[in-house]
Amino acid sequence: MSLLEALLVQRGLWVYWAIITLMMIGLYGVIARDHLVKKVMGLNVFQSSAILLYVAIGKVRGGTAAILLEGEENVLYSNPLPHVLMLTAIVVGIATTALALALTVRIQEAYGTLEEDELARLRVREDEEEAALDPHPFDPPGEPEDVEYPEVKVGGGAGGAGV
């Protein structure tokens, strides 16, 4: 069964295509955006797609919410379990987002920027400063040069404050 057939013939799969699209949008956001907050937004979209997937799984066509009604027999319920699970997932998602945003705040404080390429450059410079204190592993072991060791600046401008 080719993809095209799957797309055209099997009705009811449009939800999944929507979910996939959503997921791809989210991932694209994470991959392509340099700004850290935008990445977090992408992440959120991605998480939403996962949540939607679960919701879709639980859906039974014609079913109602899984509420036990007095006296009603043979009621078609949607599967409640995925919905319940998603409550947990949503909590997790919120926690993640909160943490991520808190981190971006700290990063903004420490570096003054939230662009990842800029941050990478800064980090590389710090790495290199550190590496400069170290002779290269394969350089012939000679007499170590007489280097003065500058105090490595630790923790940028925001050392010591609480989370």
Binding site: L27, I31, A32
Partner: peptide, 17 residues
């Protein structure tokens, strides 16, 4: 090496990719 493609930490996006 730390400056090389496999020795440096990749940007987040790359790993996700």
């Amino acid at each position: 090496s730390p400056a090389g493609r496999l020795g440096e930490p990749w940007p987040t996006g790359t790993t996700v990719f």
